[in-house]
Design a protein around this nucleic acid. Structure first.
Lengths: 116, 116
DNA sequence: ACGCCTTGCTTGATAAGTCAAGCAATATGG
DNA sequence: CCATATTGCTTGACTTATCAAGCAAGGCGT
C-alpha cells in the first residue's frame, strides 16, 4: 500500500508529519490520512513533492497510487547507493547490520526459490 | 490549453463526444467540460484512456494538464560510498524490508538507551 | 412540415482530495 | 512534578472531478 510505504520512508528519515508539512507544503492532516490509507489517490503534484523530499522516484509513487505510468510496468530496481543515500545518516554499526541483513534477505530468497 | 488540444484531436478524427464516451467509458458530459476548460485537472486515468484512443503520448497530456512529468524532474540522485556500489541492484521489496529493518534497529537503540 | 436521431451542452448530485482548527497522548525541559 | 511543546490524528468545511439525466439546436429522410 502506498500509505505504509510513505510512512516507512518518513520513519526511516526520522521526520515528523509537521516537519514534512513544512518542507512540502502538504498539510499534516492530509499526510496522516494518506499514510493511513484514508486517501487513496493523492494528486500527482503531492506525489511529486514527496518524491522530491524523500529522494524516491516519482514514477514509483505514481505506480503505487494506481496511476498509469508512462513506461507501463517497467522493472523496478536502482543502484544500491541511491537507496542507501536516502536512508539518511547511518552509523557504521547500522551500516554493517544492514549489509548483513541484505545478504540474509538474498540468501533466503535463493533458498525459497530452490524449494519452489 | 489541454481542452482545446483534445478537441482538435477529436475533431481531426471525426469523432463525436458520445463516440469517445463509448470507447473510453468517459461520460460525454465530462468530455465536454474537459474540452471547454471547465475541468482543469482530469485524473491521470482519464488522460491515459484518451491518449490510448487518440494515439497521442500519455506524457504529453499529463504535461498539458499541468502535472509533473517524470522526465521533467531531477534524474537519479547518486554519489555514495563505494561500499554499496558493489551490491548492484536493489528491488523495491528488498528496499522495503531494509527500511523496516533500519527502523527496527533504531527503535531498539532508543529503547536500550532509555533503559540505560 | 413532421418526426427522429445526433450532437454539444448545462445542471444537480455524489464522491473524493485537501486544508484549518482543534484534541489526546506523549515527549521534553525547567 | 509541572508546564510547554511535539506528535499523530479526527472532524468539519471547501473544492473539484465525475456521472446521469435532460434540454435546445441542427441534420435528414419521408
Amino acid at each position: 500500500m502506498l500509505g505504509t510505504y510513505l510512512k516507512s520512508v518518513r520513519d526511516a528519515k526520522g521526520m515528523s508529519l509537521r516537519n514534512v508539512e513544512e518542507k512540502t507544503g502538504i498539510s499534516n492532516a492530509f499526510l496522516s490520512q494518506l499514510e493511513s490509507g484514508k486517501v487513496k489517490q493523492p494528486s500527482p503534484l503531492m506525489l511529486y513533492k514527496l518524491a522530491q523530499l524523500y529522494s524516491v522516484p516519482y514514477e514509483t509513487l505514481m505506480e503505487q497510487a494506481g496511476y498509469p505510468v508512462p513506461g507501463g510496468g517497467i522493472p523496478d530496481s536502482r543502484s544500491a547507493s541511491a537507496v542507501f543515500d536516502r536512508l539518511g545518516k547511518i552509523s557504521s554499526e547500522e551500516e554493517q547490520e544492514l549489509l548483513d541483513y541484505l545478504f540474509f534477505l538474498r540468501s533466503r530468497a535463493r533458498r525459497d526459490k530452490r524449494r519452489k
